[in-house]
Design a protein around this nucleic acid. Structure first.
Lengths: 142, 142
DNA sequence: CCTATATTGATAATCATTTTCATGTGGAGG
DNA sequence: CCTCCACATGAAAATGATTATCAATATAGG
């Protein structure tokens, strides 16, 4: 979590952007969150404590987070973009149950490694990736 | 391609839906296509030959295709949903250039295999998956 | 051929996201 | 501390993709 703050501070500095009250509030709430938040989710939960914060600011700020690498964008096909804090040490992917919509996270360094190889073979420099396995979870398949 | 028509015919029959001129036209054009078409792409290309076909119909029909399994929805983060014919024999994944939006397809059986293992370890029965690697393609990274 | 019902095309409506713009604020340099 | 100005903010309007509405039309079964 600390590195999140540090990384953001540095990014703002590099780009000549400013550290504002709102950005700090949003960053703190975001890094604390565990689940896959949509902009709306985050906006609504912030709203309770800090009524002044605007929808647009949350959008803009989450996009900033994604740009500087402390957030990852995800799209599970429900029409809303979701974000989650990216912990670069242990990146994880998702198993999505198409019946009960539960989400299980997993890590697999072997897959990650193969992905890098594929990218390299095609002359690609990858910044991030997305892997989702859809199907029925243990409960739903019985 | 033939199975596409057959599968669609059967799906319509099951659901009590009708086989119309437009659906045939759209299905034919869709199955012929190779790339990752957005609804707009398909609409515009159809428009040339069949000016009568409406935007909404293309949307509705592509959604039908996805429901009955002859199309796969994809979302590369450019704000448009794309579709491609699903050829279940040789599934492929995507490298997406975040600068020029070019898309490279690749297959990697090793990754597929590892995915199955992960799913099995979590008691999941997978129906499909999605893997996308984002970054800069050879051209854009120089 | 008739009829009930699904489908179509045009258009309006909706939803997420982005832009606009007037106003406010952080922070570098005095 | 002040001042200044570029950047940021919030509210509202604008945009772009997608979906719903509805009157007119076409399909499939009898």
């Amino acid at each position: 979590m600390e590195e999140g703050f540090e990384k953001f501070r540095q990014y703002l500095c590099e780009k000549g952007l400013k550290s504002t009250r709102q950005r700090k509030i949003i960053l703190k709430a975001f890094l604390k969150s565990t689940s896959h938040l949509s902009t709306e989710d985050l906006y609504l939960s912030l709203r309770k404590k800090y009524p002044g914060i605007g929808y647009a600011t949350v959008y803009r700020t989450l996009k900033l987070f994604a740009e500087c690498g402390i957030a990852e964008e995800q799209n599970f096909g429900d029409g809303q973009t979701r974000f989650e804090p990216s912990h670069q040490e242990n990146h994880h992917d998702h198993l999505v149950c198409t019946a009960c919509h539960s989400i299980i996270e997993f890590e697999n360094p072997q897959i990650e490694k193969l992905q890098e190889e594929v990218a390299a073979n095609h002359g690609f420099t990858t910044t991030h990736h997305r892997l989702e396995l859809y199907g029925l979870c243990h409960k739903c398949s019985s």
